[in-house]
Amino acid sequence: MAFINQKKKEVQVKIVYYGPGRGGKTTNLEYIYNKFNHRIKTEIVAIKTHGDRTLFFDFLPFNIGKIKGYDAKIQLYTVPGQVKYNATRSLVLRGVDGIVFVADAMTVRQDKNILSLENLRENLSLYKKSISKIPLVFQYNKMDLAEQGIPLLSYETLQQTLNSQLKVPAFQASALLGTNVVQTMKKIITMTLTSLQKELE
C-alpha cells in the first residue's frame, strides 16, 4: 500500500520491475537513470554479484512533483531474477503498488517467462494481493535481437501466453536501446497513481 502522509502532503509509491533472470529489468532502470539523471537528480543504487547480476535489488527513487496537491515520490525497484533468490524477490514485493513484468521475448525463454509470472502470482498472494487487481504492465523486451537473427516470440504469442487473461497494457521494447522504456514507466506510474485516486482526494 502506498505511503500517504496527509500532514506533509506526500505520497510515495513503490513500483517493482519483475521478471525472469537476464530479462532486462536492471537495464530498464539504468536507461532511465542515464537518460534523465540530469532532470530527476537522483542516484541509482545497485547491489550486484561479481558477475554483474542483481544480488539484492536495484533502486531508483525520484520525485515527479505535485499530483493532486501531494508531492509524489516514485520508487522503482528491480528484483533478482534468478530462481534461487525467491526470498529476496518476495521481500522486495512487500508494499508494492505497481508492477512492470519484463518478459524476455527470446523464444528459448518462453518457459522462464511463464514460471516467473506464476512466481509473481504466488509471491503476491503472500501479501494477500491479487495479480489481477494490482496495477500491472507487461514489457516484452529484447525486440532489437530480431535484427541479429535471434528467434523471438511474436507479440501475439506473448500476449496469448502471458496476458490473455489479465488483459493489461503491454509494450514491445528494447531496454538496451531505450525503445518504449519510458512509455512503460509512464504507464505504470499513471496507472498506480490513478489507483490511489480515492486516498488522494
Binding site: K35, F36, R39, I40, I64, T190, T194
Partner: peptide, 22 residues
C-alpha cells in the same frame, strides 16, 4: 479518474520528454 490520469500524464510528459534530453 480522468482528471488525475491527465495530471499525472502531463507531469510525466514534462519530466521525461525524450527529444531534448541528453
Amino acid at each position: 479518474n480522468n482528471t488525475i490520469t491527465n495530471e499525472v500524464e502531463t507531469r510525466l510528459d514534462e519530466l521525461f520528454m525524450e527529444d531534448d534530453s541528453a
